[in-house]
Nucleic acid binder design. Structure first.
Lengths: 134, 134
DNA sequence: TATATGTTATATATATAATATAACAGATAT
DNA sequence: ATATCTGTTATATTATATATATAACATATA
């Protein structure tokens, strides 16, 4: 299984799991209708508690990325289930504002900042809209 | 005093203070050599504890934005004291990666994302590098 | 000398994060 | 039928982060 957990990170373990599953959807290693490992199996593989995995799965469920069935486990939804909406755009803005303010404060030119973003976009393979999985 | 604190936010109060002071440097309402309010005065104004303000000030100190004198309080450093360095660029990348991955996953096109960033940059007044204060 | 500053030290309360066990309910394979 | 695997729920415990409450200390200044 891909996925590496940093126990010393300030990012909670369940957030690390969530983020890496979303990364998996982007890069194509996780596809629509894929079943994620069971909470017990995944927890054992990572050497952590099943409740931590469960928390990550329920977060992904709440955000529309997966559906949790009692028997099939967590199944990845089709892209239409988690398309960006107004709420998400609001969240992105609120997340970016302090980052950009600090960059501006530290003398990072607009062009440089946009280049950083573009580099990350390319790192994820220049996936086209609606073409990231399915 | 500008600065509004949202006690119900999931963002810690000391982070809100830190972020808004950095915003103040960007917009020009806080300038080099300005003294920030004393921890007791600021805490009283905001209706919070002085230790919460002190934590924000020490964070800003650790990040190079201010110098804390025993008597003068927290004084804003000149821009050269907090210019972006390699460590900061690493931090920005780590902060942006999960945001961009999720945007990509949710079908936000690269152009749209960059437009959001540009809009925020313009919101802060298109300050030129090295010209944001001083 | 009084006052204001940041600093340090305790103590407490609350919330979050993570773990540890245990049991429950439902589907599936043997 | 029975064993096994699923997510789920329930309790309890530990550790850490956040925020507050008091108090005292050291130092510069009016």
């Amino acid at each position: 299984m891909w996925m590496t957990i940093d126990l010393n990170s300030e990012i909670p373990i369940y957030s690390q799991i969530r983020n890496q599953i979303i990364e998996g959807i982007v890069t194509g290693s996780v596809r629509t209708n894929d079943s994620l490992p069971s909470v017990r199996q995944f927890a054992a593989d990572l050497g952590i508690n099943l409740h931590t995995v469960n928390k990550a799965y329920n977060l992904l469920k709440q955000e529309g990325f997966v559906q949790v069935h009692r028997q099939k486990g967590a199944v990845v939804n089709p892209p239409d289930s988690y398309r960006a909406n107004d709420e998400y755009y609001t969240n992105v803005n609120e997340a970016l504002r302090p980052i950009i303010a600090e960059s501006l404060c530290r003398g990072v030119a607009r062009e440089d900042f946009l280049n950083i973003c573009e580099r990350i976009y390319e790192e994820y393979g220049n996936v086209k809209e609606g073409d990231n999985n399915g």
